[in-house]
Design a protein around this nucleic acid. Structure first.
Length: 752
DNA sequence: GCGTTACATATTTTT
DNA sequence: TATGTAACGC
């Protein structure tokens, strides 16, 4: 394929308009990645722009990698190492390492992830003797993060009342703690880069001259500092090419502001604006449903997405009696579809609003013995044991990293309790030395150390641990292999025994440690520094592996940018989607709609919306209300009956059936239920009869019978027949249109 | 200092 | 539910 092939008129314009600011509003599935990659190839091949003069920013590492692959494919040459292509955070980390001479940390800084940040904030709240209930670490973390995203260092935040003053004190302490540990957090990567470019015109000039072209993916998800960075980095050549879709902005809570699109139009009045409206992914029905959802949002450029893929299937809606059945419905449907060869596992995505919803799905998949892959949730890097190991490596690399040191100083327990740590802190403070240095001194000199006497009972354990750290640090400094270092750490800390003694997940936990060791092995040549530096910037989305032919389970957030043949969106309940926390804020509600919109538009061919009438909430069953979003989708787009994939299988499958006597087997003929539930519509509540009927042998209704239904009102029977012992009728309702119903479940009454 | 237990507590999304 | 914290006893 060539770099100008397969482009429609708008795409072509986007690829070949070389200079000046360009705004591309790209609907879902409209080929924006194609535009970005082919544009880069075009710039290089046709306009002789060298790779090093191009900066391309993406939202995830995965997107960056994909883009790189496609560019290299087009060019037939590698751009690795020459072109700047990566996430905002990765690009900023790169700049900061190069320019560290101008910054309050050196170029081996470590990057703290969100967990580390919260832990640190908790510690600070304690140290400041603040009420932990009044000042919740998570909330403070958010506030600090917001401040940073809005270009505020501690000195810049408002301090007009006591609370703000307190926040300031925490923020200040937090920031100096990071500095002491030669660490930065996620937000710092952006903030410091922004400050660097602002305070040092010659540095800004250098980068701005270098980057003749700056390209940005997912522009709608940029926040203030990111937008300022983009302006700064493109300030010389002004060739800023941004691609985005305000309808897919789903990171508001993280400071992302789709209004940056409006800002862009204002800041660059001479920009070229291009709309990509042809969708190459979905069928028209999917697009229409999506549009019905997003049209409820205001303040947006209306887009008319169209597809030449035909109308396709309607949206399928299913209402399960509870969340367990909801999961089971999804799994059984997938099972049936894959079993009869209509689909394969990899065709499916199951999407949900909150990670907690994945659990029941996992249960159901496991129970059926079906494979699945889960994105996110308990992220690998978030696992306690993995974090422990990383912290150990960080301590080995830099014993002065106080944050990591305090994490592992007594994990596994080694007799260094709060009191000992306090003593250590005190000694550090008095001698004006970092914590790690005092510890190393104890390790090096033992009882001869000047600090020994003040350490009281903890002296020996501290000295022992100090000696360990010294040993690891020596290994790290001598550039010994990371795996050797890890092995030494595991040996000296008896970490495996520690996990064994712990609990029943020992197997899993140890497997995770081994997994980390494997990853470390791949960094054998690049070394510990690079390994540690890269760890923090890896995200859940990056762990999505290809070629694994199993259904994918993930949040609506995680699915952005992906596509699947068939998409389930579960938890279509008010309070889940839209989420409770969004109900009272119109902006938040708009974001929930976008989230739903993103979910729908992932589907190439088919969307199934699922909800549960009853759902466990903190262990208590709760009656739910159907999502208000369901009402956005007109009946004409929703499929009522006729779900061939979930028709009751006449033959019970011999393989992979549940063990008899199980709780599931005790529920009679679930599959029949699945079909019959299709007759029940959106607004029905738990009051409806849940039990399947006894088998019937004769029809209660006949064609031409006039009937009435509690929800759909009056209608006329078109057809009635018996299927699998259930009477199925087709009814033409006066206002609600044609529906297929299961008589035994549908509260259908004959009228005179 | 450590481990157990009882109790409280809060539950979105993540580079 | 599941996670963290406070309190207690060793």
């Amino acid at each position: 394929m060539n770099y100008l092939d397969n482009l429609n008129a708008q795409q072509y314009q986007a690829v070949t308009t070389v200079s000046g600011p360009i705004l591309v509003l790209a609907g879902p599935g409209s080929g924006k990645t194609r535009v970005l990659t082919q544009r880069i190839a075009f710039l290089m091949k046709e306009k002789d722009i060298p790779a090093y003069a191009i900066l391309a920013v993406t939202f995830t590492n995965k997107a960056a990698r994909e883009m790189q692959d496609r560019i290299e494919d087009l060019l037939g040459e590698s751009v690795q190492g020459s072109m700047w292509l990566g996430t905002f955070h990765a690009v900023c980390a790169r700049i900061l390492r190069r320019e560290s001479a101008l910054l309050p940390f050196n170029n081996n800084f470590v990057i703290m992830d969100a967990d580390d940040q919260v832990t640190l904030i908790k510690r600070i709240i304690k140290e400041l003797n603040l009420d932990e209930k009044m000042y919740r670490a998570n909330s403070i973390h958010n506030q600090i993060s917001n401040a940073k995203n809005n270009l505020q260092f501690p000195a810049d935040v408002s301090r007009s009342n006591y609370r703000e003053e307190t926040l300031f004190r925490i923020y200040e302490k937090y920031q100096s703690s990071l500095e002491k540990s030669n660490a930065v957090d996620f937000d710092d990567l952006l903030l410091w880069t922004w400050k660097l470019l602002k305070d040092n015109p010659e540095v800004r000039e250098r980068y701005a001259r270098r980057f003749q072209h700056v390209l940005v993916d997912e522009f709608q998800d940029t926040n203030t500092v990111q937008y300022q960075l983009l302006k700064s980095l493109s300030s010389y050549h002004k060739n800023l090419f941004v691609v985005g879709d305000e309808d897919q902005s789903i990171y508001r809570w993280r400071g992302a502001d789709y209004r940056n699109i409006l800002l862009f139009e204002k800041d660059f009045p001479d920009h070229v604006k291009i709309l990509l409206e042809q969708n190459y992914r979905s069928t028209q029905n999917v697009l229409n449903a999506a549009r019905c959802v997003i049209d409820h949002n205001t303040n947006r450029t209306p887009k008319n997405l169209f597809s030449d893929r035909g109308a396709g299937d309607k949206i399928l809606y299913y209402e399960a009696e509870d969340d367990r059945m909801e999961a089971r419905y999804v799994v059984e449907t997938i099972d049936r579809m894959t079993e009869n060869g209509n689909a394969q596992g990899g065709d499916f995505a199951v999407l949900y609003r909150t990670n907690a919803q994945s659990r029941l799905l996992e249960d159901a998949f496991l129970y059926r013995g079906m494979p699945y892959r889960l994105v996110g949730a308990q992220r690998f890097y978030g696992r306690r044991e993995v974090k422990d190991m990383i912290a150990y490596l960080r301590v080995a690399y830099n014993p002065l990293d106080e944050i990591s040191l305090t994490r592992v100083i007594n994990t596994p327990t080694r007799g260094i309790g709060d009191k000992s740590i306090q003593n250590l802190r005190l000694a550090a403070l008095e001698s004006d030395k970092p914590l790690g240095e005092v510890l190393l001194d104890l390790g090096r000199f033992g009882p001869e150390s000047v600090f020994w006497p003040e350490m009281g009972r903890g002296a020996l354990p501290l000295a022992d641990f100090g000696a360990n750290v010294l040993e690891w640090n020596t290994m790290a400094a001598a550039n010994e292999s990371i795996t050797a270092l890890l092995d030494k750490i595991i040996l000296l800390t008896k970490y495996q025994q520690y996990l064994k003694a712990d609990d029943d997940d020992e197997q899993d936990r140890w497997a995770n440690v081994e997994e980390l060791r494997k990853m470390a092995y791949e960094y054998e040549e690049r070394g510990l520094a690079e390994f540690l530096q890269n760890l923090a910037l890896v995200s859940d989305q990056d762990t999505i592996t290809e070629n694994n032919n199993a259904p994918t389970l993930m949040t609506l957030h995680a699915v952005k940018g992906l596509e699947f043949n068939r998409v389930f969106i579960i938890g279509m309940d008010d309070g889940l989607l839209p989420h409770n926390r969004s109900l009272d804020d119109p902006e938040e509600m708009a974001e929930e709609r976008r989230l739903f919109y993103v979910g729908i538009t992932r589907a190439r061919n088919h969307v199934t919306l699922v909800r549960a009438e009853q759902r466990m909430a903190y262990g208590v069953p709760d009656i739910t209300i159907p999502s208000r979003f369901l009402t956005y989708i007109p009946d004409a787009l929703i499929m009522q009956g006729n779900a061939p994939s979930i028709l009751p299988g006449k033959s019970t499958r011999s393989s992979r059936t549940s063990p008899s006597g199980s709780r599931w087997e005790s529920t009679p003929s679930w599959a029949n239920r699945a079909l019959s539930q299709l007759g029940k519509q959106t607004t029905s509540r738990g009051s409806e009869s849940a039990m399947p009927s006894q088998r019937v042998a004769s029809c209660k209704f006949a064609a031409q019978d006039n009937v009435t239904h509690p929800l759909w009102g009056e209608g006329t029977i078109l057809e009635s027949r018996i299927e699998d012992g259930e009477e199925i009728v087709q009814v033409q309702f006066k206002t609600a249109g044609m529906k297929k119903l299961i008589v035994s479940l549908s509260k259908l009454q004959k009228t005179a």
